[in-house]
Design a protein around this nucleic acid. Structure first.
Length: 261
DNA sequence: CTTCTCACA
DNA sequence: TGTGAGCA
């Protein structure tokens, strides 16, 4: 026995904590070469390689329990499917991080747009067709409360990171829709011209006031609004404006030419 | 510097 | 699956 190193030297060499090395020992996957008279753990080349292997497997996301089996009785054939699983898991993690990145980018873009919004301005906007999937419906006079959130939990992942579309239909109900990634949808907002207004409110009364104002404006300007009134809530934008919720009201225009003229 | 144990996230 | 505190 010659040339062995102490636990803190091994820790520094492998860029881990001494704690972690003792933890691996407690779990039975890394024993010291020997322990000295002073009870110090001492490690040689074999242990360095073994620790390197352990750290590699940890990086792949394996539990210490699984690593223990890899390093003892598992054959190469038995390990291969585990590696495929590790590959799938890290691909999933990459997708999760990509979504995270896109959301942050979207936040920054929308914050940029907030500052460009003209106060109390009604505008005509062109929209692409927008496929929406239904979350749930409620009476138009009802409001979204904690109980309702609880009842309809789980149907929409990352709800508070989404644009929530309130669609007021003729039968006096409001449908809550979000855009989901793929495939089927319950409602397709047509591409075309919409009259639109974005604003911030602190409470429900202000929101209702804005809705009334929107109707009044549409009538006054002679917009032939067809189809339902639409409202979008972007709760995540409150990150930039505490205690205020961001909304956009809009409605489809069937005669945009007359409005322009 | 090391050891161990305990509580904590 | 680790970390931090406290002790000897």
């Amino acid at each position: 026995m010659q040339g062995e190193i102490t636990i803190s030297e091994l820790a520094k060499l492998m860029q881990v904590s001494t704690h972690q090395i003792r933890y691996f020992e407690e779990k039975g996957i890394l024993n010291p070469a020997y322990t000295g008279e002073n009870q110090y753990r001492m490690y040689g080349m074999d242990e360095i390689y073994r620790l390197a292997h352990i750290l590699l497997l940890r990086k792949m996301g394996f539990s210490v329990q699984v690593i223990k089996e890899c390093l003892s009785h598992l054959t190469a054939e038995q390990i291969t499917p585990l590696f495929h699983q590790a590959l799938a898991n890290t691909e999933a993690e990459i997708r999760r991080l990509q979504e995270n990145k896109h959301f942050i980018e979207k936040l920054l873009v929308e914050r940029e747009q907030i500052s460009e919004i003209e106060e109390a301005a009604f505008t005509i906007v062109q929209r692409e067709a927008l496929p929406l999937t239904l979350w749930f419906e409620m009476g138009a006079t009802e409001s979204l409360n904690a109980q309702k959130l609880l009842q309809h939990q789980g149907k929409i992942p990352n709800l508070f990171e989404k644009d929530i579309h309130y669609v007021y239909n003729e039968s006096g109900n409001v449908g809550m829709y979000t855009r989901i990634g793929t495939g089927a949808y319950d409602l397709l907002l047509p591409a075309g011209s919409y009259v639109s207004r974005t604003f911030l409110v602190q409470n429900e009364e202000q929101l209702h006031a804005h809705i009334q104002e929107f109707y009044a404006h549409a009538e006054q300007m002679g917009y032939m609004c067809s189809g339902p009134l639409l409202m979008v809530e972007k709760s995540y934008l409150s990150l930039f404006t505490p205690n205020q919720l961001h909304y956009e009201l809009f409605s489809y225009l069937c005669n945009p030419e007359e409005v322009h003229a």
